[in-house]
C-alpha cells in the first residue's frame, strides 16, 4: 500500500454483511472497503450474490446483519429522506439498464436531475443533459426512445443517466455483460474516462476479466457469500488457489 492511497479515506465500508432469502444464504459475512477515487471490482460466479451486495449498498435491499457505511453514513439507520439525500451522491448502473421505456432519452436523463436536484433551472438541466450525452458520445439520440437504441447504446445512456447527478460513487452492475468485445472495450474506456473526469470511487461488479483488468485497481472475489480472495489483477492471475486460477485462466 503506497503513501497516497493510505491517506485517502474510505467512502464505502462494509462490515460482516449477511443477507438470506429464506434458506438461500446469499451473503454470509462480507467485508469491503473502498477508498476515495478507488475502483474496486467484485468478481464472482453467476448467482453468487453480486447484485444483492450492491443493492444493499444503495439501500434497495435491507441487509439482515452487518453494517454498511457510505460517505460516513450508516445506510441501515437512515430514514427515507436521509437515504434519498445520500443517494444523490451515488450513481447506480443497473445490470438491465433499467431505462424508462415510456420516456425519451432526454426525459430519462432529466428524471433523476429533476428529482434529486430540485433547485436546478431549465437551462441548467438542458446543459447537464447535453454534457452527459456528449460524455458518452450520443448527443444525437436526445429525442429517441430507448427501444430505438442498440444494447451498447442503451448501456451508455444508462451510464449518462448515472453521471448526470455528478455522484461521488458509482456502482456498476455488470457494465459489459452481453456486449460484443469491441463495444465492451468502448464501455471500459468510457468508465475510465468518467473516473478521471468526475473523480469517482466505484464498485464494479463483473465476471468479464477484460473489463476488470482495465477498469479496476483492486479485485475482490465473492464466493460462498464471503470475500474469498483479494488482490490486484496480476496477483490473482498468478494465485495458487485452484478456484481462482481456474477463473482467471480459462
Amino acid at each position: 500500500m503506497n503513501y497516497k492511497t493510505k491517506e485517502r479515506e474510505n467512502v464505502i465500508e462494509i462490515r460482516d454483511l449477511k443477507k438470506s432469502f429464506g434458506d438461500n444464504h446469499v451473503i454470509r459475512g462480507f467485508d469491503l472497503n473502498v477508498k476515495d477515487r478507488e475502483s474496486v471490482a467484485v468478481l464472482g460466479q453467476s448467482g453468487s450474490g453480486k447484485s444483492v451486495l450492491i443493492k444493499c449498498v444503495i439501500g434497495l435491499i435491507t441487509a439482515d446483519e452487518g453494517t454498511i457505511k457510505v460517505l460516513g453514513k450508516a445506510v441501515e439507520q437512515l430514514n427515507q429522506v436521509e437515504l434519498d439525500e445520500l443517494r444523490t451522491d451515488i450513481g447506480f448502473l443497473f445490470q438491465s439498464n433499467a431505462l424508462y421505456d415510456s420516456m425519451t432519452i432526454r426525459e430519462n436523463l432529466e428524471f433523476p436531475l429533476r428529482r434529486l436536484r430540485r433547485d436546478k433551472s431549465k437551462a441548467e438541466i438542458d446543459a447537464a443533459v447535453q454534457e452527459a450525452l456528449e460524455d458518452v458520445g450520443l448527443f444525437h439520440t436526445l429525442n429517441l426512445m430507448p427501444s430505438e437504441l442498440s444494447g451498447g447504446m442503451r448501456k451508455r445512456i444508462s451510464i449518462a443517466r448515472t453521471l448526470i447527478v455528478q455522484p461521488k460513487i458509482i456502482l456498476y452492475d455488470e457494465p459489459t455483460t452481453g456486449l460484443d468485445p469491441i463495444t465492451a472495450g468502448e464501455i471500459n474506456q468510457l468508465m475510465n474516462k468518467v473516473q478521471e473526469k468526475y473523480k469517482t470511487a466505484s464498485i464494479i461488479i463483473s465476471h468479464d476479466l477484460d473489463c476488470i483488468k482495465v477498469t479496476a485497481q483492486r479485485i475482490v472475489i465473492l464466493k460462498n457469500g464471503i470475500n474469498y480472495k483479494e488482490g490486484t489483477f496480476e496477483e490473482l492471475k498468478n494465485s495458487e488457489d485452484p478456484w481462482v486460477s481456474a477463473f482467471f485462466n480459462t
Binding site: 424508462y100 428524471f111 434529486l116
Partner: peptide
C-alpha cells in the same frame, strides 16, 4: 428494474 431505478433517483 425501472421501479428500482426510480427509487435510487430519489
Amino acid at each position: 428494474e425501472q421501479i428500482d431505478a426510480m427509487e435510487v433517483s430519489g
